[in-house]
């Protein structure tokens, strides 16, 4: 603040009661200004219609063993694979020390048969192939990202290529044997 003749004048009439009123008014005003900013900030949080679509419910009863389906969840593809016994065995047999991003298969699935993954390569965000029967599935029989050649195994873990991490597992829960809610 500038030193001016006016400030000097103010000092002469200084008085604690006066200051108390002034500073409490400042305090109340600041609280009001902060509160007024909140609606503007909150308006940029996800809106009700966006939140309403934030979870996806699916009926998996028609998915055959060895088959994969792709669902949309929060604008992203979600891979759901009903794994065969061989695939489960393969996923479980690997030693954790051999993995780039060590994680046990049992930490990545809720039911051995159902593998649920966010279908976005953790390298640079491409969609890996391997969902359809004829697709390239990579060296580990899971998924293969065509952009920079990342190979994922039957648990969606990164095994070879530039991707740093395993495919993400979204939050999900089964409401019964075949009904799943993602998100």
């Amino acid at each position: 603040m500038a030193t001016t003749s006016q400030d000097d004048k103010k000092d002469t009439v200084d008085d604690s009661k006066r200051d108390f009123l002034l500073y409490s008014t400042y305090a109340v005003g600041s609280v009001g200004a902060l509160a007024a900013a909140w609606p503007f900030i909150d308006s940029m949080n996800p809106s009700k219609d966006v939140l309403a679509l934030a979870s996806t419910e699916l009926d998996l009863s028609s998915v055959e063993e060895g088959q994969s389906i792709t669902a949309m969840w929060r604008g992203k593809p979600v891979f759901i694979r009903k794994r065969t016994a061989d695939e489960i065995k393969l996923a479980k047999s690997i030693k954790l020390s051999e993995l780039k991003d060590p994680q046990a298969d049992s930490d990545r699935v809720q039911k051995d048969q159902w593998l649920v993954l966010v279908g976005i390569c953790t390298h640079l965000g491409c969609i890996p192939s391997g969902q359809k029967g004829g697709d390239v599935k990579g060296d580990f029989n899971g998924w293969f990202c065509p952009c920079h050649g990342s190979h994922y195994d039957t648990s969606g873990r990164i095994r070879k290529g530039p991707a740093p991490k395993n495919l993400d597992v979204p939050p999900y829960r089964f409401t019964n044997e075949t009904n799943i809610i993602i998100g």
């Binding site: 009123l21 409490s24 008014t25 109340v28 005003g29 009001g32």
Partner: peptide
């Protein structure tokens, strides 16, 4: 708040 401002 306005009453306080008036007093100030």
């Amino acid at each position: 708040f306005t009453a306080m401002l008036y007093a100030v």
